[in-house]
């Protein structure tokens, strides 16, 4: 896309230089046009009630003034829900760790037993990733009832796809020579995976686990909206009851927890790799 055509059109006249040939210009123009047309069509089709925008800034300003000053005394009440949020993320990640690994081996071309298992592995990964954590939570709340157990499973099921995909990619990039050498010793398939493959992808496994834990903390903050535990319950009820001074305390709490988890995760990952 950065092709420069320096062929002079006419050597007798002054030489002309253009960034793009007419054909390239046309193609670029059509791309732009296509994007704008798609945008305009989508926007008009969404039937957005623009008059809402007229007082949106007032609404927002009103909201912000109600949020301040924060209701600091409420802070003590949200400590337990915040802790529960962290627990949901951590336990969910631990559950994922045990499920994602076998799925990753199924979904990697070079370790899957056959084409059917590969398809199953790939489908599990796509299915897990396509369904948002909150949607998974809806499903698990229907199964386990409201509470953190549903949240843990929701977090775990969404993370399988994320971790499984990254680990499967790492498995596909390993050194096949090592695998060949272990096969040549007469080791069974499972032992080849254990000695030939696993050590090569271990850093990736640890790295993605910690990385996903950090993402899961953020995801867990909203699970409460569908009743799956954590700080989200407090947030949702505070917003619905227009307790904006409480809301700002909750948001502050979430900000602190998420920032700390990000900091921890980045630190651990820097030490692993």
């Amino acid at each position: 896309m950065t092709g420069t055509d320096l062929t002079p059109a006419d050597l007798t006249g002054p030489r002309v230089w253009k960034r793009f040939t007419p054909r390239q210009s046309l193609v670029r123009f059509l791309w732009y046009l296509g994007c704008v047309a798609l945008f305009a069509w989508s926007l008009s089709h969404l039937e957005i009630p623009w008059f809402y925008f007229l007082d949106a800034h007032e609404q927002a300003a009103d909201l912000l003034t109600r949020m301040f000053p924060p209701h600091w005394d409420y802070g003590a009440e949200i400590l337990d829900p915040l802790l529960e949020t962290i627990h949901i993320a951590t336990l969910g990640t631990i559950v994922t760790y045990f499920i994602a690994l076998p799925v990753a081996f199924l979904a990697a071309r070079n370790t899957t037993p056959n084409g059917v298992t590969w398809l199953i592995g790939r489908f599990l990964l796509v299915a897990s990733r396509s369904v948002n954590t909150v949607v998974w939570a809806l499903i698990f709340v229907a199964i386990f009832g409201p509470g953190p157990v549903a949240g843990i499973w929701a977090v775990a099921f969404r993370s399988i796809g994320f971790m499984g995909k990254l680990i499967a990619e790492a498995i596909e990039e390993i050194d096949q020579g090592t695998v060949e050498a272990i096969e040549a010793t007469g080791a069974s398939r499972m032992k080849v995976l254990l000695i030939g493959v696993l050590p090569q992808v271990l850093p990736v496994i640890y790295g993605t686990t910690v990385y996903r834990w950090d993402i899961n903390i953020r995801e867990s903050t909203v699970l409460g909206l569908v009743g799956a535990g954590g700080i989200g319950i407090e947030l949702y009820s505070a917003i619905n009851q227009f307790q904006w001074a409480d809301v700002s305390v909750i948001l502050g709490g979430i900000l602190i927890v998420v920032l700390i988890s990000e900091f921890v995760s980045a630190g651990v990952r820097a030490r692993i790799t």
Partner: peptide, 10 residues
């Protein structure tokens, strides 16, 4: 830091 759902609520 804030999850999409929180933004959506607002």
């Amino acid at each position: 830091t804030f999850h999409e759902v929180i933004w959506a609520l607002f």
